[in-house]
Computed example of a mutant assay.
Amino acid sequence: MAFSQNLNSDKKSSIKKECIGQLEGEDIFQYTLQNKTGMQVQVINYGATITNIVTPDRYGEMQSVVLGLDSLAHYAGWQNSLVGSTVGRVANRISNKTFTLDEKEYTLSSDIHGGVKGFDKRIWSGKALPGENDVAVEMSYLSKDGEEGFPGNLLVTVTFALNNKNELLIDYHATTDKATPLVLTNHSYFNLSGGKDNKVLSTELTIFADNYLEYGDGSMVTGTILDVKQTPFDFTSPKTIGEDIEQVQQYTNGYDVTFVLRNQTGELALAARALEPLSGREMEVYTTEPGMVFYSGNWLSEKVKGRNGVPYTENGAFCLETQHYPNSVNIPSFPDTILRPGKTFSSQTVYKFLVRK
């Protein structure tokens, strides 16, 4: 039976903690963050997963703008395509599920998303962080040496904070006792119409990137950086997701590509902007990361029922996953993804929600 605890409540913000069930003999909690405008973000400690983001449209109506599932069993089951989850220890792909680090070769349990049981399938520890102007929940997880084949005891914290400017800030920090590759991201699926359109092909997207990573079979990157000009991957000016998607479907069934962002400084900068015409909702993505994967929901299937029993649909949502480049551990020319003892990994991504009248 679910129980709830109100941890902080005032006119500006609130946090509510609710037990929604058990997995592997441990309690799973959902944290509901709400700001003074009424925007809500819900996060569970299974997979450090965003389950809900509720924002207003141009008429002031509040709806969720991310895909979700109806039950904890669904989140832990085959239906879950990393929906809203924190992905690691290394998000995206590692070729042949092997890498060599400091003259030692490591073999992983899988070539994608951190292994067979990556961070998205782990139970994290949650800690509410009430505040006067923003509210947050801190998720932490100790990934033990050898887990999924990776070296080092890695302590990861991910903090989800909601402020009164309708910004969701995601801060990542990690330390390790052995050198290890590390690429973290969040895998939320966005549909800014709030249910008014079951496709995102009309969403207008701008990506602040002049280059993208060439990919081969299975979307594995080759190491070559290409220019977006005169390709379907040119989002340097606002363009609907659907405008050129048929060209991409000839060889990948839609967009699943890593963009090389203009900002390579490690400082927070604007990476993308999305505008949904029916609702007027606009989302800006800021990140300290050098890359971003744009995925157009190509493999979403009507066999899976999402929130409120509504089936998913192909191209029914999109992902903007800020991260270091795929397979970086095997491509020396890519930005370094190795975290070493004595160093602290730090990264931030901000999703800002606006409304165009």
Rank of each mutant, 00 (worst) to 15 (best):
D10E: 13
E18Y: 00
E26L: 13
I28P: 03
F29T: 02
N35S: 09
K36P: 05
M39Q: 15
I50V: 14
Q63A: 11
G68K: 07
D70E: 14
G84A: 11
V87R: 01
A91F: 08
R93C: 06
I94P: 04
T107H: 05
G115T: 05
K121L: 14
R122E: 07
P130H: 12
G131Y: 09
E138V: 04
S143N: 12
E147N: 14
L155V: 03
L155I: 04
V158E: 07
N163I: 06
L168D: 11
V183W: 03
S193W: 02
K199I: 01
T203P: 01
T206R: 01
T206E: 08
I207M: 04
E214V: 02
G216I: 08
V221M: 13
L226S: 10
V228M: 02
V228L: 11
Q230F: 05
D234Y: 04
N253S: 01
N253V: 06
Y255D: 11
T258F: 05
F259C: 06
N263P: 02
A272S: 13
P277A: 10
T287Y: 01
P290S: 15
M292V: 08
L300G: 02
K305Q: 10
T313P: 00
E314A: 15
C319E: 08
I331Y: 04
P335F: 07
V350S: 06
V350E: 03
V350H: 02
R356G: 09
